[in-house]
Amino acid sequence: MLNEQELQELQKMVDIAVNALEDVKAKDIIVLDTVGKTSLFSRMIIASGDSTRQVKALANNVSVDLKEAGFTILSSEGQDSGEWALVDADDLVVHVMLPAVRDFYDIEALWGGEKPSFHAGANKPWHAADN
């Protein structure tokens, strides 16, 4: 379990990452609490970008903003292709994906997260099988 100071630092980290994603117009941002599911990290953020260029920009913006705030980035993956980029900031892992990739891997379900609600009564707007 995290103590109060660690929780505050983690929340600051999450807030910075979410703001960085919102600054570059990420879509469908969700934050998952992974405490008790893994000892590797405590929070996971999943977001979508509309193009490979945007996915790369989103991941880069998260890395830059977290570094500027004094947090350590352990690694970044996927910026080459831009279909799925990951930023590992120790207690926080950020996944940024193209909608079709996000739909295919459905990591929200793997980690037991709730599906984000989109349009009342509608499925995910990026469902790849609809094309």
Rank of each mutant, 00 (worst) to 15 (best):
S39R: 06
H127F: 06
L74S: 08
F71Y: 12
S76Q: 09
L110P: 00
F41Q: 14
Q54H: 08
N131T: 05
K12A: 12
L86F: 06
V62Y: 00
Q11L: 10
V18Y: 02
A57V: 08
L2V: 07
M44S: 12
S51L: 09
A129M: 05
F71H: 10
S81H: 05
N19R: 10
D103T: 06
V101W: 00
D103Y: 04
L21P: 10
L40K: 04
E108A: 01
F41G: 09
D50L: 11
K12C: 11
G113C: 00
S117P: 00
F118H: 15
G112T: 06
D33R: 01
K25R: 12
F118K: 05
I73E: 08
D65R: 12
M44H: 10
K115A: 13
D88E: 14
D23Y: 12
L66N: 09
S42F: 06
F118L: 04
F118T: 13
D33M: 01
K12E: 15
V35S: 07
P116T: 07
Q79T: 14
R43Y: 15
L40I: 15
T34V: 11
G121E: 13
D50E: 07
D103N: 11
V24Q: 14
A20G: 09
N131F: 10
T52P: 12
V18R: 03
D50A: 13
A122C: 15
T34M: 07
D80M: 14
Q8D: 14
K56Y: 03
D91N: 15
S76N: 06
Y105L: 05
D50C: 07
N123W: 04
P125F: 01
W111E: 00
S117C: 05
D80Q: 14
V93R: 04
V18A: 01
L92T: 09
A26V: 02
V87K: 02
K27E: 14
D23S: 12
R43Q: 15
Q5C: 02
E83V: 05
M97S: 00
Q5M: 13
N19Y: 08
Q8F: 10
L66C: 09
G70Q: 07
E68V: 08
V101C: 02
S39E: 12
T52G: 13
L110K: 00
D90M: 13
E22S: 11
N123P: 08
S81F: 00
V35I: 10
L66Q: 01
L98Y: 02
E108R: 00
G82E: 04
R102K: 12
L110Y: 00
L66W: 00
E114A: 15
V24D: 10
F104N: 04
